[in-house]
Design a binder for these strands. Structure first.
Lengths: 200, 200
DNA sequence: CCTACCGATCGGTAGG
DNA sequence: CCTACCGATCGGTAGG
């Protein structure tokens, strides 16, 4: 049996990526350097580098893992048997909890940070970030549309407009928590989301 | 008369900072390097560096100029004789126009980007960014409170909550424009702001 | 997965 | 405001 099996290599790759997500959460995807990862993990730079082949591939894999973690922390927690407005409200509650707990590795919302960091840098990373943001807004919009169809929201509700407004509330909440340390932000977010989603 | 007067030096400093704002608008404040500035301006690195004495001082001065430019592009354009809700609405309109035109140097809202970049990096730059964000939210809150006092908004309106929600709409608009190239975002923003600020 | 490199660039300094 | 440096770090490569 070889000392370094394919499974070992895959484990190492996962260890590298978890470390990369933690670094990127605090310092951005550009803060994830090969040397820093090697240092944190007690590996050589070439050992880290070999798992990816380029900085860009490392960034893409790091972003991909962060998106997976977001999906486990927010949509997965709100999944279930609810219908209509109930599902949307549970998703919003999980979303605010995620922000209140500091997002990923205490660095706030990873997707929002990556969007800001790459929105002016054309390339595959920017494309992946834009796709993830599109997917998330589309998911919100589907839940909003289902709530309208179920009769839980006024029939003249624009699902895309509601998704846009909910996203804005989350971005403001993330900024208030991460930059201002504003502990009242989650409660403001709940009020704002309830109002946007047609609370009585 | 000396070839290099104090006024010449001051002009050079301003030239450096305008270039730095343009770089930072696209690539973030960490993207502003002494070498890149020297290259873009046809100067030596030491010539650039000498005007500031540290990277941090350069970042602070760059952020300060960006804040000045924001104030000229948004609050200054909305200043005037309006009262109550009229002043708040003019400010929001100027704000959306600013975002629609790409913010500063096409890079979007500089303050929002700097907030994301530095919210996890303690130090004087983070402090300056947090203060600017606080000041802006306080300004919005004052206009909202004045609109309530003038009887233009319901008396149970929470000015801080409204400022929070308007900020969120702007952040969502900035993301939609910069990341998604969503040309419908400004119109969504106007609808959302009108609804948040109690349009009939 | 390692050692040992490469050229480029970083922030910053010496000395003029 | 310049030339000419400094040590550190960057992404990436050669060769094993």
């Amino acid at each position: 049996m070889p000392r370094r099996s394919a499974a070992d290599a895959s484990d190492t790759r996962e260890r590298i990526l978890h470390c990369a997500v933690a670094i990127a959460a605090r310092d951005g995807l550009e803060g994830v350097t090969i040397g820093r990862l090697a240092d944190d993990l007690g590996m050589s730079k070439a050992g880290v580098y070999g798992h990816f082949g380029s900085k860009e591939a490392l960034q893409l894999a790091t972003f991909g893992l962060a998106v997976e973690q977001f999906q486990e922390l927010v949509p997965a927690r709100a999944a279930g048997t609810g219908t209509g407005i109930e599902r949307l409200r549970r998703l919003c509650a999980a979303w605010i909890d995620y922000l209140e707990q500091g997002g990923i590795a205490g660095g706030g919302c990873f997707l929002a940070a990556a969007a800001m960091e790459f929105d002016n840098r054309p390339g595959p990373v920017r494309d992946a970030v834009a796709r993830a943001a599109d997917d998330w807004l589309a998911h919100l919009e589907r839940l909003a549309a289902a709530a309208v169809e179920a009769g839980d929201l006024p029939s003249d509700t624009d699902p895309a407009q509601l998704a846009f407004e909910l996203n804005g509330i989350a971005l403001a909440t993330n900024q208030a928590i991460q930059l201002q340390g504003d502990t009242a932000a989650p409660q403001r977010a709940r009020r704002a989301m309830n109002r946007a989603a047609g609370a009585p």
